[in-house]
């Protein structure tokens, strides 16, 4: 595990070398959202904007008055910003949903998975900005966008592979093998880790912007704390998706449990659909970002 983390950090350090093109806005692509998603986004955007403005004003204020009260307010606002930010559409939640559809899960696992993704997402933004800042002596947003694109490609590729691996495992699974519950729980705990890393490693653009802002006005530590707090907020929302999926899957299976054949079939169908979702989202995002 330690080796993987070191390798990822080294890879990130090399990334600025590739960051040559100036790309401020994401690559043009057509994206069609269902109306209800657009409505949710449009409704929450003004709230996000207000919080965003407030954090900026308070952070500037801190430069003169270093009151702990203002710092706490900033951290709380960042947390709230994270909670709301994660409500908008993003592949993380869809993947968590797909994963728990396919795999067995518990409420604890749902919370841990969502929380870890949110926090890792924010840690990644902090690392990217700090590296760029100390390597290039400036946090060039366009370079960061390029770095983000490369990390995304790696992440989406890995996600597609995870989906594929889940499908292969399903196809190879022997029917009669009986494992103890503890074994299953242990194995499933381990199996979610690659997915957490693959999703969480993508730096959050919102976090990057807060980080650049704080570094630029000379408040690096505040930036780190605010972005982490935002990550915990995002983790809360993503966890809710995980827990909701686990609970609804459980109740669906319970309904079908009177007929063990139906239940078995339903479980298999959910397993395939979930794995397929992961494979499809990973591949499509990979291709879209090439």
């Amino acid at each position: 595990m330690k080796k993987i983390i070191v390798a990822i950090i080294l890879l990130m350090m090399l990334l600025p070398v590739f960051a040559q093109n100036k790309q401020y806005f994401p690559k043009k692509r057509k994206s069609i959202y269902p109306t209800f998603v657009r409505k949710i986004v449009e409704t929450i955007a003004p709230v996000q904007k207000k919080i965003n403005d407030k954090i900026a004003i308070l952070a500037r204020k801190i430069k003169d008055d270093k009151s702990p009260k203002t710092i706490i307010i900033i951290l709380l606002l960042s947390f709230l910003y994270g909670v709301i930010h994660a409500v908008g559409p993003g592949h993380g939640k869809t993947l968590i949903f797909s994963y728990f559809l396919s795999e067995d899960g518990s409420i604890r696992k749902g919370i841990l998975t969502g929380g870890s993704i949110g926090v890792l997402h924010s840690i990644s933004s902090i690392i990217v900005v700090l590296l760029m800042y100390f390597l290039l002596k400036a946090a060039f947003f366009h370079s960061i966008q390029n770095v983000e694109r490369i990390i995304k490609l790696i992440s989406y590729g890995v996600i597609a592979l995870i989906g594929f691996a889940l499908l292969v495992r399903f196809a190879l699974k022997k029917r009669s093998v009986k494992e103890s519950t503890a074994d299953i729980e242990h194995e499933s705990q381990k199996s979610v880790l690659p997915l957490i890393i693959a999703i969480g490693i993508i730096p959050c653009t919102g976090g990057i912007l807060i980080m650049i802002f704080c570094v630029s006005i000379g408040l690096l530590l505040l930036g780190v704390a605010a972005v982490l707090s935002m990550g915990i907020g995002m983790g809360l929302t993503i966890s809710l998706v995980g827990v909701a999926t686990v609970l609804s899957k459980k109740s669906a299976l319970k309904l079908a449990s009177s007929q063990s054949k139906t239940m078995n079939l339903l479980q298999k169908i959910l397993e395939i659909i979930g794995a397929l979702f992961i494979l499809a989202i990973g591949s499509l995002l990979f291709l879209a970002n090439l």
Binding site: G90, H91, L167, G206, L279
Partner: peptide, 26 residues
Amino acid sequence: VIIILPLVLLFFLSAKLLPSSHPHLF
């Protein structure tokens, strides 16, 4: 495997919805 293959194909053909980032810029 027979169940999976057509589903894989269907997904690649039909999945046009690409999740994107939520607003980052105001």
